[in-house]
């Protein structure tokens, strides 16, 4: 670290963006009308994401109809567990849907975010995040469904545990510049194998060890067996971000895990990205970062700060979508006449 320049560069993460399919709002409306009524209890939902696969646009956290519990009478015979595939890795989320616009605005957003961050922190410390790494990506959605106007007010948060002091960047560059040809080929093959197996295709965090130019990918639970003298070790994650110099949001909580659970202060990470659905090391990034020991993390009572409310066109305001044209029975009747 003596070679580092005088000015340290803070590692900056590109925020995740949300995308909500029309089917989600339709199912929420049905649930509200048929099942929930005025019950405002939070609902467990499932978001989906995937590694970035187009150089021009980042991937998103996507909500679909299947993100919500099935509607009454729609429980299909096959059990309808939300299943992922390589293009939709399930991520656990929670929805607070309020009955009025006033109660939507009155929600204590800071406390809600903290509550989700606390779950992430606890899952890191209990070891649960090593068994099911998708819990590192927990998200929060608050909404008000105005079923008179068929409009939906909503706001996403992607809770990220704040490292204080922040991690600093030593180096970040295309992954293809960081490996020998042999290592690169082996790593691409190992990534494609991971992505093609139905057991691992939707597992977004993983460990990469490279020994004698041969890359192996393992789940986080294999951390202990992954260490050795002659190994290069990298922390890999499905990166939804397309930017050439920044990792995406999911790395934040992963670094928190690496720092607080495995006590590492210097890490190499792989921002895994694809082209045409295959590993692309020219587009993927390898970064090296220093994680100073965060203040207070040894205190068992301590919970780190969290950030992550989504910005709407540069402003800290909620979003609103109106689906009256496609959902309002009166308008549909007029259109059909």
């Amino acid at each position: 670290s003596s070679s580092s320049t005088t000015s340290t560069l803070i590692l900056q993460f590109a925020p995740l963006q949300s995308l909500v399919d029309e089917g989600f709002w339709r199912r929420l409306s049905s649930l509200k009308l048929d099942t929930l009524g005025i019950d405002q209890s939070p609902i467990n939902i499932t978001g989906f994401y995937a590694p970035c696969s187009h150089a021009q646009v980042s991937n998103h956290l996507t909500l679909l109809a299947e993100s919500l519990p099935p509607e009454v009478g729609e429980q299909s015979s096959d059990g309808t567990i939300v299943r992922g595939n390589r293009n939709r890795c399930p991520v656990p989320g929670i929805l607070y849907n309020t009955n009025t616009l006033e109660s939507f605005h009155a929600l204590d957003k800071q406390s809600l975010l903290k509550a989700e961050a606390k779950k992430i922190w606890e899952d890191i410390h209990s070891g649960k995040a090593e068994e099911d790494s998708s819990v590192l990506l927990r998200f929060l959605l608050i909404s008000f469904a105005d079923l008179k106007k068929w409009s939906f007010h909503y706001w996403f948060a992607f809770p990220a545990l704040v490292l204080d002091p922040a991690a600093t960047l030593i180096d970040i560059r295309p992954a293809s510049h960081c490996f020998s040809l042999e290592e690169g080929e082996s790593l691409s093959a190992a990534c494609n194998e991971w992505r093609n197996s139905s057991l691992t295709a939707d597992v977004p965090f993983f460990l990469i060890s490279i020994t004698n130019s041969c890359a192996t990918i393992r789940p986080l639970r294999d951390w202990k067996t992954c260490q050795g003298d002659d190994k290069k070790l990298l922390f890999g994650f499905y990166d939804p971000c397309h930017l050439p110099n920044n990792p995406g949001w999911p790395l934040r909580n992963f670094l928190a895990l690496i720092s607080s659970r495995w006590n590492l202060e210097k890490v190499r990470f792989l921002c895994y990205r694809e082209k045409h659905g295959l590993a692309d090391l020219g587009f993927s990034l390898v970064g090296e970062a220093l994680i100073p020991v965060p203040q207070g993390w040894n205190d068992p009572e301590f919970i780190p700060n969290a950030v992550g409310w989504e910005v709407n066109r540069g402003k800290k305001i909620p979003r609103c979508i109106t689906l009256a044209n496609s959902m309002d029975p009166t308008r549909l009747a007029i259109a059909a006449a």
Binding site: E102, K109, Q110, R319
Partner: peptide
């Protein structure tokens, strides 16, 4: 209707509720 809604947001927004000054956020 979003344009109409923006004044609502400002009206309701608690300025202390959402201060996120985080140097690690791009």
């Amino acid at each position: 209707e979003e344009e109409e809604d923006i004044p609502d947001m400002l009206e309701y927004e608690d300025p202390d509720n959402l201060i996120e000054t985080d140097p690690a956020t791009l």
